[in-house]
Design a protein around this nucleic acid. Structure first.
Lengths: 210, 210
DNA sequence: CCGAGGGCAGACAGACCGGTCTTACTCACG
DNA sequence: CGTGAGTAAGACCGGTCTGTCTGCCCTCGG
C-alpha cells in the first residue's frame, strides 16, 4: 500500500509532551481507525462518538472498520489499551520519572505533570474514569477501565516500594484518591487542584515513612 | 424560585438513611415524573434513561410529560435541584451534622456517612460528577453540575469557618478533592475509600488550625 | 346536560444508532 | 490475463432517540 498523499488531516503535532493525537499515523486502515478513535474518544467520550463519525474521520469504509474490529466496544477496548500506553505510561509516569531523581521526588512530580496537563486547552479528564462512570462498573468497558486504573495504582505502588514506604498498597490507594479527586476538580475549573493534591500527597508520604 | 405548596413534599424523608427513592410518591403527574426521574437518573445516569422509559415508569402520557417539562434537559435540571436537596443537604450534610457535635467532628463525619453510603447496594456515585464528566464542563447540564458541586464545597467551607480553620475556601477545595476521589475509588470497588480519605482529611484539618 | 380541559394511549416524524451487505474499483501475484 | 484480497462508498436494516400530534376518556363547573 502506497501512501495516500491526501490522507486526511493529521496535524501530527510532534509535541514533546503528552501526545494527544500522536497516536501513530499509520498508513494502514487499522491504524487510521485507532488514531481517529484516540482523538475522538479521549476528547468527547465514548458515547458521544458514533461509528459513522469514526469512519468518516479515518477515511475508511464501514466494512473495513468491521473487518478490523468486530464491534464498537472492541474498538473502545483497543483505545483503552492505547490510552494506557500513551497517557499513563508515556506521559504521566514517564514525565514524572524524568522530573524527579529519587522515587519520592518522582511520586510528587506526578502532580507537577498533572498541573501542566490541567492547563492544556485540550484537557479532557481521565478516559478511564469517564468510561467507568459512563458505563458503570458492571459493564465490560467499565471493568476494563477499573483494570487500567489499577495499573496506574501499580505504578504508584512500585515507586512507593522503591522509596521504602510503609504499606505500599494502602499508600497507592490513598494516593490514587488524590489523583482522581484532583482530576475531577480540574474539570470543574480549579486551576490549582494539582497543587492542593500535591500538598496532601506530601503529608501522605510522611505518614508512610518507616 | 417560589415554593409551591404542593411542591412534592418530603414525607418519607424521615428515613434515617439516604432516601434513594423517598422522592415522594405524589399524586400529580409532575411529581410522578420527578420521582421517576430521580430514581432512574441517580441510578443509571442521564444518557441511559430515555423519555419513553420515564413516561412508562411514571405512568404518564408523553404529552403530559412535555406539558410539565419543555425538554428532557429541563427535567434533568429539575432532577439536579432535587438531588441537591435530598442527597447533599438532607443526606450528606444532614447526617454529618447529626453524627458530630463540634464543627470539626461534623466535617470528619462526612466520611463516616460516605462509608455507609459506599456500602449500599444501590450506591451509584455522585450524580453531579457523573453528569459533569458525561456532558462536559461546557454543556448546560455540566455547568449546572459544577454549580451544585460548588454548593457542596460551600457547606464544607461553612463548617470550616465555624471550626475557625485557616483559609476556609482553600480548605474546602482540598477537602472536596478527598470527597470526589473517594467516590471514584468506591465506584472502582475500594470499600475502604472513605476511611482512607478521612485519614487524609484529618491531616488537612491539622494543617489549617490557627 | 354540555362544553372545556387535563390526562392517557399511542402513532408518527426525523434523526441517529450499531451493524450488515452490495457494488465497484485497485492492485499484487501466479 | 485471471483471480482473489482489500478497500471505498454507501444503501439498507432494525432499533432507539427526542419531540409532536391526534384521538379518546374522564371529570368538573355552569
Amino acid at each position: 500500500m502506497i501512501f495516500d498523499a491526501d490522507h486526511s488531516a493529521e496535524p501530527a503535532l510532534a509535541r514533546a509532551d503528552f501526545p494527544a493525537e500522536a497516536a501513530v499515523v499509520s498508513a494502514d486502515s487499522r491504524g487510521r481507525i485507532l488514531a481517529a478513535a484516540y482523538e475522538l474518544f479521549s476528547r468527547r467520550g465514548v458515547r458521544d462518538v458514533g461509528v459513522n463519525e469514526l469512519i468518516e474521520r479515518s477515511g475508511v469504509a464501514k466494512a473495513t472498520f468491521y473487518r478490523h474490529f468486530p464491534s464498537k466496544d472492541a474498538l473502545v477496548l483497543a483505545f483503552l489499551e492505547q490510552r494506557d500506553q500513551l497517557w499513563t505510561v508515556d506521559f504521566i509516569v514517564g514525565q514524572a520519572k524524568l522530573r524527579g531523581t529519587t522515587p519520592t521526588e518522582q511520586l510528587l512530580a506526578i502532580f507537577d505533570v498533572f498541573g501542566d496537563w490541567f492547563l492544556r486547552d485540550d484537557f479532557e479528564a481521565c478516559s478511564f474514569i469517564n468510561i467507568l462512570l459512563e458505563m458503570g462498573p458492571a459493564h465490560p468497558l467499565g471493568l476494563a477501565s477499573i483494570d487500567y486504573l489499577a495499573r496506574i495504582r501499580g505504578h504508584v505502588q512500585a515507586l512507593a516500594e522503591q522509596a521504602g514506604l510503609d504499606r505500599p498498597e494502602d499508600f497507592a490507594r490513598s494516593w490514587h484518591i488524590l489523583m482522581k479527586g484532583s482530576i475531577v476538580s480540574a474539570t470543574e475549573g480549579d486551576i490549582q487542584a494539582a497543587k492542593r493534591a500535591q500538598q496532601m500527597a506530601g503529608w501522605l508520604i510522611e505518614h508512610h515513612r518507616s
